[in-house]
Amino acid sequence: MGPGQAKANGIALEARDLRKVYHRGSEDIVAVDGVSLTILRGEFISFVGPSGSGKTTLINLLGCLDNATSGSLKIGGRTVFDGRKSLSEGELTKIRRQVFGYIFQKFYLVPTLTVIENVLLPYAFYKKAEAPADPMDILRFLGLDNRASHRPSELSGGEMQRVAIARALINKPEILLADEPTGNLDTKRSEEIGGVLRRLNESEGLTVLLVTHNPSLARIARRTVVLRDGKIAD
């Protein structure tokens, strides 16, 4: 099953003319400048571009972590943002926990909780009703099953990021957003994480949106979106 075929199950995410303008004093910074993008279910897309080109801003808009200034956004056929109307924090939260899993450059593991507790942490706030994931399956998949009762401080950076991935997967997200997930890791660990993301995409059909500076990591993706000054460059 090739993710590029998208299994005829349609569109995961559709952005039309998204813009994000920051006001800094009297200056307007257009971080994302009219991006239109359609992402199919099961796709693996990487976002690359120079620093300040708007990668993080765009992925945050797509992941409902932030409101766009204008444009529209549909997720799974549902319009979550249209025109100027901004979503409330509560509404954003509901979409986020239903659809997305996030990983970042920093891992943000809770130091006093064990690996398994960190992975289960989202359940303290929300548990998807349909088909909950078995946390041990996830840990096994990520090669962490013998680390379940360790503390984060006992893990390597790569292992910590894998715990963060496991935590992002516990509620079976449709889309995984990863903003420079290997920014804090060396080459070997970066490849490890890249491999994990690819396996998740290929064997689980997870849609992956990856922001990275690392060209070899970006190459894992079937599609690469290059950003320049907030616009998609081709």
Partner: peptide, 16 residues
Amino acid sequence: FQEIGIIKSMGAMPWD
């Protein structure tokens, strides 16, 4: 602060 932000990205509501 950051950790709380992450918890919210996990789906925690303000009340949680």
